[in-house]
Design a protein around this nucleic acid. Structure first.
Length: 212
DNA sequence: AAGCCGGGGTA
DNA sequence: TACCCAGGCTT
């Protein structure tokens, strides 16, 4: 009987190395914590494909919280509008104001500080910690929730999923592991018609015997 | 705990 | 047409 590191984490990282969405602009090396935070807000309930078209012009125009604070709020809103959930323009503006006022424009490494930012919840805060600060923690979104609940045959609304996901994170590879879960769930373990026939997990997935 | 936000892609 | 998308805020 394989442990989850052998049956889940290893194959998932291998799949990701070969098939991951490595070209997404917010994953490029050298992105600042603020640029990553902006990406995570734009990605809330919004597909990576949609955000990829709007991201570069936005961070080019607003590379720092200071530039957001100084900008015309309506100009920001116009750039967010094609993505839907236009209220996120205000999220970005208020969060930037908070960063300038409380942390002299720096994105804090403390989870509690991040959670206080307007528009930043558990998922977004954890994503910033993994991708910007290389913390060994997981961020459970709709994709990760679906993937983990299927693989371990747990109810999707189980409150243990975040803790379980944290325990799977390979040391110093939190960002890769997070991206691997997201990409795999988006491309293989999909919501409506998962590609179970070609799934690399095979029998290791505890939902493999069942119609998912 | 439930409601709400939203344009765009997909089956 | 219905469902889904790197959630979080408000009530």
């Amino acid at each position: 009987m394989l442990n989850p590191q052998q049956s889940f984490v290893g194959p998932l990282l291998a799949w990701h190395e070969e098939n991951g969405r490595h070209r997404l602009p917010w994953r490029e090396p050298g992105r600042s914590a603020f640029e990553i935070l902006i990406a995570e807000i734009l990605l809330q309930r919004t597909t990576a494909a949609s955000v990829s078209g709007a991201y570069l012009p936005i961070v080019a125009r607003y590379p720092s919280p200071e530039t957001v604070v100084a900008a015309n709020p309506e100009a920001i809103e116009r750039r967010i509008a094609p993505l839907g959930l236009a209220k996120r323009a205000e999220f970005i503006r208020r969060t930037s104001q908070q960063l300038v006022a409380r942390h002299s424009g720096d994105v804090s490494r403390r989870y509690a500080d991040l959670l206080e930012l307007h528009g930043v919840g558990a998922y977004t805060a954890r994503s910033v910690l993994t991708h910007a600060f290389d913390e060994d923690i997981a961020a459970v979104d709709t994709n990760v929730r679906r993937l983990i609940s299927r693989f371990f045959d747990l109810p999707p609304d189980s409150g243990t999923l975040p803790h379980l996901a944290d325990g799977l994170v390979p040391s110093r590879r939190g960002s890769d592991f997070q991206h691997a879960m997201l990409d795999f769930a988006a491309d293989v373990c999909t919501a409506r018609t998962p590609q179970c026939e070609t799934c690399p997990f095979g029998e290791h997935c505890r939902s493999s015997e069942r119609a998912v």
